[in-house]
């Protein structure tokens, strides 16, 4: 088990956002998490990385319990996260290389940092020469790849991707999805892949969990869940996919 949620509950004040959520992300697999806005997907992600306190249950990463340890106090994070908005996820005053190097564990020397940054940029198909550039000179898709490289710099056991393609144009979305699949194949990465887009999840995930109103209502191999849904809510979601295909929200600017 790489990442395990055991009966996790989260409350914000009087409202309970997650109800006894249990979910496994086994090593080397991509688990897709789908559901509508407000269903609790993002809260689950934030709970895993310690940005949101857990009010009940446990979160276990490679047999060590991490709930109750807020982000920033964790000695080895174990989990890294990539966010939805590429324009908010990189510090505009830091070069791409600095942002990536910051996530590296331990105290690497300058040379180690430079080499590792170059390696990671290459890994996400960006020219290592871009390490000195500021995020402002990058497109949305390129920023998302830098964010991915930064997450990988933390040498995570598990990566959480929270709607990483929903702010991107369709022509760029494909490139990021291809990259995600490639990473998993080549690095054996474990990943919790959150999206509201069933077609996207279908394309990258080995198993799918469906979330509704703070509960996981269905979880199984992607093919089974999407072709033979057992829960009413999953069926409703599938029926709503336009033209039996997908849709991808993003804003026209």
């Amino acid at each position: 088990m790489s990442l395990r949620f055991e009966q996790v509950s989260v409350r914000f004040g009087r409202t309970q956002v997650l109800h006894d959520v249990s979910l496994d992300v086994p090593a080397g697999t991509i688990v897709g998490l789908v559901g509508e806005s407000g269903s609790g997907k993002s809260t689950l992600a934030k709970a895993a990385v310690g940005l949101v306190p857990v009010s009940g249950g446990h979160i276990v990463i490679e047999n060590s319990q991490v709930d109750g340890v807020p982000a920033g106090r964790r000695t080895n994070p174990g989990v890294q996260m990539v966010f939805q908005d590429p324009y908010s996820s990189l510090d505009p005053r830091m070069s791409v290389g600095e942002s990536i190097a910051e996530a590296m564990p331990g105290r690497p020397s300058r040379a180690e940092r430079t080499n590792e940054v170059a390696r990671l940029l290459d890994l996400v198909h960006l020219d290592p020469g871009r390490a000195g550039q500021r995020p402002a000179s990058l497109s949305g898709g390129q920023r998302q790849r830098v964010a991915l490289a930064r997450a990988l710099a933390g040498k995570p056991k598990v990566l959480i991707a929270d709607e990483i393609t929903s702010a991107l144009d369709v022509s760029v979305q494909g490139a990021v999805l291809n990259l995600v699949r490639e990473m998993q194949r080549e690095l054996g990465l474990s990943m919790l892949f959150i999206s509201h887009n069933l077609a996207v999840v279908r394309y990258v995930a080995d198993t799918v969990a469906v979330m509704s109103q703070g509960r996981i209502v269905e979880h199984g191999p992607t093919v089974d869940v999407l072709e033979h849904p057992t829960h009413d809510y999953t069926r409703e979601l599938l029926a709503a996919v336009p033209g039996g295909t997908s849709h991808t929200p993003k804003k026209e600017t």
Partner: peptide
């Protein structure tokens, strides 16, 4: 047609 589907943000 059915009325609004229930959402978390009632």
């Amino acid at each position: 047609m059915a009325a609004e589907a229930p959402t978390a943000s009632r």
